[in-house]
Each structure stands twice: as structure tokens, then as C-alpha cells.
Amino acid sequence: MDQHRVTITFTLNGKSVTMDVPGAMNALTLIRERLKLKGTKEGCGIGECGACTILVEGRAVNACLMLAAQLDGRDVQTVEGLAHEEGLSLLQESFVKHHAVQCGFCTPGLLMSAKALLAENPCPDKAAIAQAISGNICRCTGYQQIFDSIRHATGAPTGEEKT
């Protein structure tokens, strides 16, 4: 058996995928270059920025630090899996509505971290949000409108409504 290539099967955004991958390929390269899902970004390559955050078994992980082969048998979600046919998810809508997006390069990773948080804790306070997204660097927004977006995506009351 040539272990330099591995056959893996996993669920990607709800659909089963089977493919041969090089043992030395990381999950980020698999997603971007082989599966052509370019929403997941490489910002640092070493787990220090969170731009490549995806969900594996519902948990946020850095795709740059995971080998493609390690996705075998797992449920994987990327930013492309967030919107449904009818439109954006609540979380995405909230990011748009509350102006959490500037350059947008960190946005997909942040959405994935936020999604994992809300699954774990449907009504997080600001401290919980800050903690959950602290592995996602944003250089544009200062995070404040991102906090607002995530809080609003919970449906929890947060004071004055912005237009």
C-alpha cells in the first residue's frame, strides 16, 4: 500500500465526498485547491489567525493545522455550507446587517467560530463571544460590530436596534 496517498470519505456541507489525497496535504489545501471552495482562507498557515476555521464534527478547527487525511469519516462544514437555498443563515444576515464585515478576509472563519459557539451556547454574553472568537484575528473592525452581530444572531435582546 502506498501510504503517500490516502483514500478518504467525509461529509462536506452535508454531502458525502470520497477522494484520494496525498498524506502530506493539509485540510486547507484540500478544501481550497481540490474541492475549489475558496471561502476558507489562508491567513498565516500556522493556526495564529483563524481565517481557515472550519467545523469538524461541529467543532471549530484551523484547517491549516489539520491533515486532509484526518478528515476521513468526519462531518465537515465550511462557510459555503452556511447559506440555505432560501438565502443567508441568521448569522450571516446578522453580520451583514450589523456591519461586521469590512475587508471580509476573516469573515468566513469568524462565521464558523460563531456558529460553533451558538450551537454550544445559544445565548452567549459578550465575554463568551470574545472568548469563542479569540482565535480569529480581525485587523479591520476592532471586533465590536462582530460582537453585536453574534449577539443579535441569537435572537436575544441587546438594547437599541440599529438601522
Binding site: 483563524g50 478547527v61 484551523n62 493545522l65 467560530s113 482565535g135
Partner: peptide, 9 residues
Amino acid sequence: FASKQIRNV
């Protein structure tokens, strides 16, 4: 420890 993404794995 590091970040949530890192703690998860």
C-alpha cells in the same frame, strides 16, 4: 490555552 480552534484538537 492558545485559542478555541487549537484547544479543540
